[in-house]
């Protein structure tokens, strides 16, 4: 068996590949639904209905998509430069910590100033957190996959320590949670009385901004060049290590915004269950979008829809909601195969 390069397909065909990957995922996971003794068609119908069948469902999906857009962008940016940031989970939590540190009354400022100040501080904290592994990679050759993964555990323990210590809400009845952020630090709701908040708008704007950076700026060009062929990039005079540092700062900052948006827009305070693995799911979101920042919006909404829909489905049918995690993981694997098939033809002998 060998792989033969083939000419790049047209945009229309390229867009078909994610759909083919999703179709394959549905077929594979329908085996699990059968194993659970349910009918795949009705289960997938219930998932779709739970994700987009009503105004409530749709708003819930967009709310769930918001942190995934941020972490998806963080991963898309990093993976484009082949910086393997698997630590978006930690960066997200640090974003939550900084939001709570500055947003619970430490800075008595009006909303229009306070929120931008918090956002800048949050991004700086997330950026610094990823800068460590990036420096270890470029200076010492320590694989960033392992360091970012291990940092996820360290940071989660650190947050747990803060929530039982200095950040503990005195009115929390012993529950490990922080105080609520003050009204000036809260992102308003998009629609009165619904959960969807302005974090979603910030996420959309970030996606557009990241798209501009990646496509239209020298930095974006350098990041793509480093990811494509770092030796070649070095040869044409790109400072590879410096580009990787900038990538790390951007990626860490974006992931931290997910934590800010969840605390400031949705939850109001920091708890240890702020993220059910948004940092890891962001990897799937980015891959489904083929690392395209605008595509991240669509894939985040899709992945969020699976989770929201599966929750609703599992209440109606007797299929565990973990089917959503299986679908998301399977779609990651089918997607990388689909991307391969856009560029290569498989020759059996």
């Amino acid at each position: 068996m060998r792989l033969e390069p083939k000419p790049a397909p047209s945009l229309a065909v390229t867009l078909l590949f994610p759909l083919a990957a999703i179709a394959t995922t549905l077929m594979l996971t329908s085996l699990l639904v059968l194993a659970a003794g349910a009918s795949p068609l009705s289960v997938f119908y219930l998932v779709a209905k739970g994700a987009a069948g009503s105004q409530f469902a749709l708003l819930e999906t967009l709310t769930r998509a918001t942190p995934l857009i941020f972490t998806g962008l963080a991963i898309a940016v990093a993976f484009r430069a082949k910086l393997w940031n698997i630590g978006a989970e930690a960066q997200l939590y640090i974003g939550g910590v900084v939001t709570v540190l500055l947003g619970t009354g430490a800075l008595p400022l009006p909303s229009v100033i306070l929120i931008p100040v918090i956002m800048v501080a949050v991004m700086a904290a997330g950026a610094l957190l990823l800068l460590g592994p990036a420096v270890l990679k470029t200076r010492f050759g320590v694989d960033e996959v392992v360091t970012t993964l291990l940092l996820n555990f360290i940071v989660l323990l650190f947050v747990s320590m803060l929530l039982q210590g200095v950040l503990k809400d005195p009115m929390g009845l012993g529950w490990p949670q922080s105080q609520k952020v003050i009204a000036e630090a809260q992102l308003p709701r998009l629609i009165q009385g619904k959960r969807l908040h302005y974090g979603f708008v910030i996420a959309l704007a970030s996606a557009v901004l990241v798209w501009v950076v990646m496509k239209k700026t020298v930095l974006g060009y350098e990041m793509r060049a480093v990811g494509h062929n770092s030796e070649g990039a070095r040869f044409v005079g790109i400072l590879v290590n410096r580009t990787l540092m900038k990538t790390a700062l951007l990626s860490g900052g974006l992931a931290a915004l997910a934590g800010f948006s969840e605390v400031s827009g949705l939850k109001g305070n920091l708890t240890l269950d702020l993220s059910p693995g948004y940092g890891y799911t962001g990897i799937v979101v980015a891959m489904l979008a083929m690392l395209n920042p605008l595509g991240v919006i669509a894939s985040a909404v899709f992945v969020a829809g699976i989770f929201v829909g599966a929750d609703a489905m599992s209440r109606a049918a007797k299929v565990p909601s973990y089917i959503a995690d299986v679908m998301v993981a399977t779609s990651l694997l089918t997607m990388v195969v689909a991307i391969l098939l856009t560029r290569f033809r498989i020759r059996w002998r």
Binding site: L3, L32, A35, A36, F79, W84, I86, V145, Y280, I283, V284, M287, P320, Y322, I323, D325, V326, V328, A329, T330, L332, L333, V336, V337, L340
Partner: peptide
């Protein structure tokens, strides 16, 4: 297929973990 060992590895971890939890609950 020569796919990225980073991405596939994370994918296998996500898949094996979620399949395990699914089976446990089932």
């Amino acid at each position: 297929l020569g796919l990225s060992q980073h991405v596939v590895g994370i994918g296998v971890t996500l898949l094996a973990t979620s399949l395990t939890y699914f089976t446990y609950r089932l």
